[in-house]
């Protein structure tokens, strides 16, 4: 059950970063923006870093998180056609 709640927060975080892709924030700052408790967010951000959705810069309380955008292949390169 705790897992499901974690997941929910995780999604919330991910959607936040997707909507604001150039966000650079510490745990404290994100807690404020998301209206969540910093200690809850800490683990969630950690998981998002493990999943390579976020990048962590620095360590500890001063660590900053930012979004890693998914890779977009330039559509001029790729053909939707039989090889």
């Amino acid at each position: 059950m705790r897992d499901e709640l974690t997941l929910r927060l995780q999604l919330e975080c991910t959607l936040f970063f997707e909507a604001n892709p150039y966000t650079l924030e510490s745990v404290q700052g994100l807690a404020l923006r998301l209206g969540r408790r910093p200690d809850h967010l800490e683990t969630i951000l950690g998981r998002l870093v493990e999943l390579a959705i976020l990048e962590r810069l620095g360590e500890g309380q001063r660590a900053i998180y930012r979004y890693i955008q998914p890779a977009v292949a330039a559509d001029s390169d790729l053909e939707w056609a039989r090889p």
């Binding site: 150039y22 966000t23 924030e25 404290q28 900053i64």
Partner: peptide, 14 residues
């Protein structure tokens, strides 16, 4: 252009 979202303290630090 970049629309950057961060805290005031963090900006100063960075």
């Amino acid at each position: 252009l970049r629309v950057l979202c961060m805290s005031p303290g963090l900006l100063l630090e960075q």
